[in-house]
Nucleic acid binder design. Sequence first.
DNA 1: GTCTATATTCCGATAGAC
DNA 2: GTCTATCGGAATATAGAC
Lengths: 185, 185
Amino acid sequence: MNSTKESIVNIADDLIRRRGYNAFSYNDISKVLAVKNAAIHYHFPTKSDLGVAVIDLHIQKIDHFIKGVAPLSEPEKVEAFLNIYEQIQINKKVCLVGTLATDWDTIDDKIQQKLIVFVNIVGDWLTGVMEEGLKKGSLTFNGDPQTRAMLIITSIMAAAQMAKIMGPASFQSVKNAIINEVNRQ
Amino acid sequence: MNSTKESIVNIADDLIRRRGYNAFSYNDISKVLAVKNAAIHYHFPTKSDLGVAVIDLHIQKIDHFIKGVAPLSEPEKVEAFLNIYEQIQINKKVCLVGTLATDWDTIDDKIQQKLIVFVNIVGDWLTGVMEEGLKKGSLTFNGDPQTRAMLIITSIMAAAQMAKIMGPASFQSVKNAIINEVNRQ
DNA sequence: GTCTATATTCCGATAGAC
DNA sequence: GTCTATCGGAATATAGAC
């Protein structure tokens, strides 16, 4: 993959998570790159193609993350996962899943299907971490591992959204609460 | 307020929570009502004016909700609050706060300010319920009331978003987990 | 209060030159 | 691989008649 194509995907990712899928245009990208909007259509014929590529980028990144944290303990894995969202919040973005979920009825079927794949990767991994933590006793929590994983994902993703409205403090309190909730005595 | 104006706000509310703020147009509303887009501009000169009116409608509704549940116990209040989101999920919408948060950087300052007011009303009310429940012993939970309130709001709002991607079952498991978390033995 | 008509701008996308 | 030029359509918004 050449550098221009990669740059387009990265800028699109940034724009989608700052402004939403329906509020960014090929022109916005061509303003950032020194490239005309026709050049972007060469790499991604339709906006849906670009949307799918952005999710593919996130799948790559989460795969890399999962491999990277493999040696860590379960509590450390949870914290590392929450730190991804902390970075999102600090950069004043929201997570890809939330912003595409709120635009769900307007996005192409190909984007929808790819997003389902991405959410399953994240959900399955975190469910596995919860199962392992429960077995080893390194994590303590109420309910089954899958529900706890979903509860963590929903809380932290909405916390990043809430921070856009209420500021960073609201994010931090939710993040700390999530950690406390899986380390109960 | 006349009936046409009310209808416009109700349809806009529906469209915003189904398709997102930037994906609905005055034309979409005029298709549903038997009215031309110029007629909508008469009632709401700009799209931002309409956006503010939609949040005002939600402020009215939550005020009415708060008054209605006043006689109930704290656990019943929490459940009634979660049931609002269950209805949102069943109707395949998302909540107003989440969808406007993900479009935050693209919405007018007047809409942003009004949304802050709305979130504070909801947050203050639920914090009060948590405080009261803690004092009476009708609710049991970890952490301070304000954090718990924020945790409930973020979890349930993202659960409605997640249901768009993963289906209704994921919503129900999160809803039940939230209830269990404030009724721990 | 609602209409027709229109201005202006921007969008996603394509054709064809280089 | 990127360009110029342009198409067809849709968006927000306004002017002025009824």
